[in-house]
Design a protein around this nucleic acid. Structure first.
Lengths: 120, 120
DNA sequence: GCTTGACCTGGTGTGCGCTCCAGGTTGGAT
DNA sequence: ATCCAACCTGGAGCGCACACCAGGTCAAGC
């Protein structure tokens, strides 16, 4: 069973070392295993979790909900709640995409207008 | 020529009154016309500008670049720069949409996985 | 004329999500 | 044995984009 030090966990997850500690303090991540000297040893499971958390975070899920997910993920019987949370978030993301698409159209229109003005 | 008080400008633009003042202080919005008593009177042009600024803001453009656009918009001869700024931003938005779409897919997959686990 | 509420300015406070710091410990390389 | 870089903890600081506040001014209705 491979483990990873903070530096490697940071590199692989895309979170900074400080953020990893912060997430652990905040209960988003379960307490990470330590070696005899007190240093953190991230497992493959931890990394997989971090990878998914990164997806949630990058899609705009606030820390508070991240924590909720992290807490739920500690008990196996909470899968329905986790599913619900993810489905709800997926909807939020979908809505956001739709918004962005209409705004992008607007930007393109404005750009087209500028090009027309300039090319007269 | 219709004008609008701060309250109505806020309602129409979707920015708060505080934000409107803030944008003006920051030079994002040009100095707004005042009545004899010093109260702001937003014009239709101001509202149109605010509406577009809202689009830029909602698509994640940072305040600093908003200011840049606001400053440029004060001189008619800066249309090429404004066009460039908008085109660049449109690209950023497009990239963001693509990211969100792949992340949304990932969320759906995770949800599907959970459903499968639960329905076994 | 007086009240009342919307508005003014300058400045301070707030929430989020990290990020940095001081002061100390650990452990692999030489 | 010694060095030094990576790690530890608790706590303070920061950047962004506003939001809020005190203390005063203006104007519309009664």
């Amino acid at each position: 069973m491979t483990t990873y030090g903070p530096a490697e966990a940071a590199e692989r997850s895309g979170f900074s070392i400080d953020t990893l500690r912060y997430y652990e303090r905040e209960g988003i991540l379960p307490p990470v295993a330590r070696n005899s000297g007190g240093r953190r040893q991230y497992s493959d499971d931890d990394l997989a979790m971090l990878d998914f958390l990164r997806c949630l975070r990058d899609t705009g899920m606030p820390i508070e909900r991240l924590r909720r997910y992290g807490e739920l993920a500690r008990s196996p019987e909470t899968m329905p709640e986790r599913l619900a949370l993810i489905e709800e978030h997926a909807k939020v993301v979908e809505t956001r995409i739709a918004e962005l698409e209409s705004q992008r159209t607007r930007l393109e229109e404005k750009a087209a207008w500028y090009r027309e003005q300039l090319g007269n």
